[in-house]
């Protein structure tokens, strides 16, 4: 299984986010626009960070915003938000964040293969920088090696 499709609606280039919450909310809106989640999902992604801390900043400059599967997840989805100004999430080593990847999964099993594909992309240490500088959704899809798909 490949990564979920990444339609144009699921990509935001150069978002202006005042803080980490608005950066995550931007990813939540992108997931909702692309039809993957209801709008409540953004609140749950924020709640995960409020509860457990900024561990979602899993590599320098990269936050993987996500929450548990739930009724607000309509189908597996991916969103990518690049930030015009880097935002601190409060991670001791990997701040500031330049790219937020939003992930929604309908059940815990189905996402393992797509996450492995995500790992393939980001095992290349230059990937976050290239995503941060991408000019449009087509370039983002190219860097992630995924299809556009219908929204």
């Amino acid at each position: 299984m490949n990564l979920p499709p990444l339609p144009d609606e699921a990509v935001v280039i150069g978002a202006h986010a005042a803080d980490w919450r608005s950066a995550v909310r931007e990813a939540g809106r992108a997931l909702t626009r692309s039809g993957a989640t209801r709008s409540d999902y953004a609140d749950r992604m924020i709640a995960v960070i409020e509860e457990f801390g900024a561990y979602v900043v899993i590599a320098p400059g990269l936050a993987l915003a996500h929450a548990r599967p739930g009724r607000d997840v309509l189908r597996e989805g991916l969103a990518v938000v690049t930030l015009a100004e880097p935002v601190a999430f409060g991670h001791p080593h990997n701040d500031p964040v330049r790219v937020v990847v939003g992930l929604a999964v309908a059940n815990a099993e189905e996402h393992v293969a797509s996450v492995a594909n995500l790992a393939n992309v980001f095992n290349d240490a230059g990937a976050v920088g290239r995503l941060a500088h991408a000019r449009d959704a087509t370039e983002i899809r190219g860097l992630l090696g995924i299809e556009g798909g219908a929204a």
Partner: peptide
């Protein structure tokens, strides 16, 4: 281990296997 048991812990598992 991650907070919710999906996403980040799965990435960590994949890369630990590597």
């Amino acid at each position: 281990v991650c907070g919710v048991g999906i996403g980040t812990s799965a990435i960590l598992k994949v890369n630990a296997e590597r």
